[in-house]
């Protein structure tokens, strides 16, 4: 009986005792074993692969979360620093500090007329040209 014949649909019937010489028992068992081993190996490898990939994904997701938190912290800190700088630049505070240091307002200010004017702070040109950035105020440009 061949392996092909075994796969064909068949009806139940009385079976005669097999002739030992017609059944390649040893050869069929070895192939099955090889197939089973290979299948098992593949399954184990697949399982390990999936578990490994899953672990890597989890690891990367954890890293991503950590980075998100870092970004959040950095943004939060940036916002705090912006507020802090603005508070330190407050004209009232500067005046108070200047008075503490004994400074007095100038009564003899002199003025220079610069030949090169400073660009407007971020306003679009009237002719629809590019946005003009104030070099002193990057806060209103894309560099902010």
């Amino acid at each position: 009986m061949s392996a092909v014949a075994l796969q064909q649909p068949r009806r139940l019937r009385a079976v005669e005792a097999p002739v030992a010489a017609d059944v390649p028992v040893v050869a069929s068992g070895r192939r099955t074993l090889v197939l089973a081993l290979a299948t098992s190996f593949l399954i184990v490898a697949a399982v390990f692969g999936i578990v490994g990939l899953n672990a890597m994904t989890a690891d990367l997701a954890v890293d991503a979360r950590a980075l998100e938190l870092q970004v959040g912290d950095a943004e939060r800190r940036y916002a705090e620093l912006v507020a802090e700088v603005a508070a330190k630049e407050d004209p009232g505070r500067i005046r108070e500090r200047a008075l503490e240091l004994g400074l007095v307002p100038s009564t003899a200010a002199r003025h220079l007329a610069l030949t090169r004017g400073l660009d407007a702070d971020g306003l679009r040109r009237p002719d629809g040209g590019p946005v003009i950035a104030d070099p002193l105020k990057p806060v209103l440009t894309q560099e902010r």
Partner: peptide, 19 residues
Amino acid sequence: GSRGRIYDREGDVLATSVT
């Protein structure tokens, strides 16, 4: 959504939001 800042005409911060 973070609330926008308020600047003076030269970009000095007059109002902002912090956590």
